[in-house]
Design a protein around this nucleic acid. Structure first.
Lengths: 214, 214
DNA sequence: CCACAACGAGAGCACTGCTCTTGCATTCGT
DNA sequence: ACGAATGCAAGAGCAGTGCTCTCGTTGTGG
């Protein structure tokens, strides 16, 4: 039942945009709006469920694309993942806006969402870690400063002896990917790069890979 | 009068978030909600006015910071501009979300907004152009493909004989900046880089500068 | 002096999220 | 087998929203 509500809500999200109306969802299902509150305590809770699904969906799409590109060059794997994320975002623009766009006003993301949110960045960091283990990362001067210490703490979650600089570069690549996809989706690229946006994204990802040291 | 409405609306935006209520603005001014419609045909039109103001505000902040850093190293100028944009975004997070976050549902940006929107990217591209004219950009293989042609068309707006690769890298730097600021503002960095986000941003900007060839 | 335009107030429509009460089935315990 | 308890949905209602329409006031120019 909750699944059906989520499905209808997702459909509404895809057509109407972020201002998801609980009443409209209920109307679509032929039930009173109050009945939906049996399954979701509030509109925010329904939003949270959709957010978690969206994170899982894009994460799975990225992982599947990377699995299909197994054995390829590390840089090409990054490109593959990035393009897969873009393809997903183009197919589900409102879901993308839900998770990587401006936060819904008055909505505080609960703890449940932070775990699925890490799937893509973990995938990217994993590729970088494997490349480092394979000795394919060029040597670079290590970073210093307070943020370097924080990145070193993050690095321990990925594996032993990963240079903080590499973790920072991997996060930067992910952030750049998010920014590039959002820029395309939110109209930032209009009137400058209108046709071959896929090629422009690949250009950017290869730049991020170079920054990593690949 | 329209100025006063915009001022109150901006205050509401800063406190309540993106769901700006026309009635609340009218209440704050001691007038009926219908009276506001004398000055703005719709809520969207008020939003548009605020969006234009926000673009101008961040653009001016960036330009002022760059002017104050005149004569500095080109890379340092990029860093200065990036940090100024970040400072503005931290001071006005809702205005940032308004212009660089997910578009308001059902809102179609009119033509009036595209000109002010280009101020920051023009500033960055200008720095890159000057660096190129000064011979400070390292040689890189030129890009090819459909997006390279589109970037070549864009390059003509910036000056004569600018390599398309450079325009692409400048745009990539701007996109990366937007992504990084949005990531910080929208909570993407939580639980990984929590203290020295300024340092992490500088790290990323220097990466973008390296990609440009500085 | 009067007409006209500008302006604001108020009522009202259709919509929203959310709460509370009521009623109908089903099912469970004795 | 029968009453009780539970799960579920509907409906009314509240406070709020964007927006439209009408009506009264006010100020100014001819």
């Amino acid at each position: 039942m909750t699944e059906e509500i989520k499905a209808v809500a997702r459909r509404h999200l895809a057509s109407d945009g972020a201002n998801l109306s609980l009443r409209a969802v209920a109307r679509d299902m032929g039930m009173a709006s109050s009945a939906v509150y049996r399954y979701f305590a509030s509109r925010d809770e329904l939003l949270t469920a959709l957010i978690i699904e969206a994170y899982d969906s894009v994460g799975e799409a990225a992982e599947r694309a990377d699995a299909a590109a197994a054995g390829a060059d590390f840089t090409d794997r990054l490109v593959t993942v990035g393009l897969a994320v873009r393809d997903w975002a183009l197919a589900e623009p409102h879901q993308w806006a839900l998770i990587y766009g401006s936060p819904v006003p008055g909505y505080q993301a609960p703890q449940d969402t932070i775990m699925p949110a890490t799937r893509v960045i973990f995938l990217i960091a994993g590729i970088v870690r494997d490349a480092y283990a394979a000795g394919r990362i060029a040597e670079r001067p290590e970073i210093t400063g307070r943020y370097a210490e924080e990145l070193a703490a993050v690095a321990e979650q990925f594996g032993p002896d990963i240079p903080p600089r590499l973790v920072g570069a991997a996060m930067a690549a992910f952030i750049q990917l998010c920014g590039a996809v959002s820029a395309e989706l939110f109209g930032q690229l209009n009137n400058s790069v209108d046709e071959d946006r896929r090629g422009f994204l690949e250009f950017q990802i290869r730049g991020a890979a170079a920054f990593i040291g690949l």
